[in-house]
Design a protein around this nucleic acid. Structure first.
Lengths: 198, 198, 198, 198
DNA sequence: GAGTAACCGAGACGGTACGTCCTGTCTTGGA
DNA sequence: TCCAAGACAGGACGTACCGTCTCGGTTACTC
């Protein structure tokens, strides 16, 4: 008896599906990741697919999710300013590349596809927000940042603008734009604050 | 003299379509604003509709667009802090209501539906960004805000977080959340800045 | 023992479609046999319909086809003259009735709808031509007819005039007209031939 | 006021329309002779077109009609057999060429388009049937053909088979086929008749 | 090691919306 | 006054994808 498959068939099927979906996403974006296409390429039947995921967006979210975490490792540069700025820079760069398009499509689909939202949150947001929270807490411990601001609010302030630009395309996502956003978020919009800082 | 049809036919058709679309959006969100449904309710044929708009998202954007401007008048409270905070509060409130859902669906659809993006930008972003730019310039003239920050960046910083929350639903859009975001954006995330400010 | 669904799904779908189409043809001719109408009445989706037939004319041809064969049984009166004349009479009568209109519409549609032509030939012509060929061969065996004439040419000569009249409506399809045609075809147009015959 | 146009505008418009239609028929068959296309090419508005013809098939019938008469002049070879056979040969050749396709489409359309039928009859059948009737009467006068057969029946017998083949494509329209049909029609299908004839 | 039950591939199916096309009517403004 | 130019309603077209379902064959447990 082959112990090989302590992973039963269902696990292998999931893997095939996720792998095929990743390929399709790269080739043609979310639009190409049709359930039929996923089924055909993975060799897993649609019925089986729908046993594991509620809708195709959920599959795509799971398939694409880890990639982002891998692509954006947590910086550790010694100061809050440097760490957070660098993180904004990295995320911005990710958004600006081909994966950004896919990310935007996934986020968009999650709005429509109610069932996919939890998947999107699980595979995209949670990890990333936890990462930023860690940076934030590290900075808090060092007394570098304003303790009246929650990690959540800080995250939204730093990355919300990037998301905004990604979704609407109204403004560029170039590196210096990312820095301008990070700097403004860190030092604030008011005049007094910035006098001696930069 | 027949004032009756000072509007030529094409104008009447457009009006009918936009009106019907508004109703459908209110009744069932973007999902209900099918081209067929719009055609049926407005009495305008599909062929004609497709002569005026490239896709249904574009129609919805135009139909829904003015509403937002109307719903969010520009505040004028005397100081930059008050004005900008109030504006964030108002936009947040708009997003939190039933129109927020529709707005989110529209933004999401604009990502997928390439042809609709310009419509979305024209009927949603441009006006609103111009409004905020005016607030910003007013504040700049008064010397209240950091002149190193562009109006665009300021806008993204203040409203990007709201959009982010609206799209992912990862955090609430309550009034005090809006204030926390505005305050953090104005004073910055760093500690030093905020010591004497609040 | 469940005889109920010895037919797999696809067969049931085809049957439903053909049945619904037959009804629609009777009610409003080929014009009423819209794919949408067929889909609605049969409960079979358009996608499925288009999986089985290339166009609506093909469906109608298949649906209507057998009826003609059933309506026109092969005569067996003992002599070539009697058999062939009777057959012309029967076909003419069929054309003169309500089914004739539908038949004409189908034939007309097959000209335009290239994809439907094979269906029309299969479900209308082939059977009927085979029938006439049998009559012809029977007559040939008896030595009653001119062996220099092929069954195909004989068929065209006997029934072509009926089709011609049906399509253009330039001349009636009454019984005695049918007989005149059959007689003329059998005995020929030249004078000598007919001297002693009638 | 310019008397120049004893042909008023309406006549010039008709000409333009018929000319444009002829071109379109040659280029893409009846399918290309859209009312819009005719209007665009002729420079005559659709409203005007519909003032002169009830539907597009009627236009095409009229535009295409004379061509057939021109293409098939009446033979005069001295004997009924020769004349009628030659006429069948010529018509068959016409049908076999590119114009045959258009003729078939027109005949087909006349079945569906009730309003076009009279046009088709006027511009196609009447002239041609009159021609054949003349041949027939000439032959009758010479005592060559069976006076019990009407000119109409004779026409149907000789040309119906060609129409039949043209419409269904079930048999070729080559020259020797045409001759076989003519011969069979003239001498009849029965054996006795043909013994000494061929 | 055979029998049995769960599972899965393959893909047909109903449903729904899409965007295109053409017809025949109707309107407008210019000649 | 008449017409070109073309907008319009109406309605069928054929396509695409979704999520459900049915079928038969394979796999993997049980006895």
């Amino acid at each position: 008896m082959l112990e090989q498959s302590s992973h039963p068939r269902s696990v292998r099927a999931k893997e095939s599906v996720l792998c095929a979906t990743k390929e399709l996403l790269d080739e043609g974006g979310l639009g190409a990741a049709t359930v039929d296409a996923i089924s055909a390429r993975s060799g897993v039947s649609k019925a089986t697919i729908y046993k594991h995921w509620p809708c195709r967006t959920a599959i795509a979210a799971e398939a694409f999710g880890r990639r982002m975490a891998d692509a954006i490792p947590l910086p550790d540069e010694g100061t809050a300013i440097a760490d957070l700025t660098e993180q904004v820079r990295r995320v911005s760069k990710f958004y600006a590349g081909p994966n950004g398009k896919i990310f935007a499509q996934l986020l968009a689909a999650s709005v429509t596809d109610e069932a996919a939202a939890p998947y999107f949150r699980e595979f995209f947001l949670d990890t990333r927000r936890a990462n930023v929270a860690e940076l934030w807490n590290r900075a808090l411990a060092r007394g570098e940042v304003n303790s009246a601001v929650s990690a959540g609010t800080a995250t939204d302030l730093l990355f919300g603008p990037l998301i905004f630009r990604l979704m609407t395309g109204h403004a560029p996502l170039a590196e210096q734009e990312a820095e301008a956003i990070a700097t403004a978020a860190l030092h604030g919009l008011l005049k007094a604050n910035s006098a001696e800082d930069y």
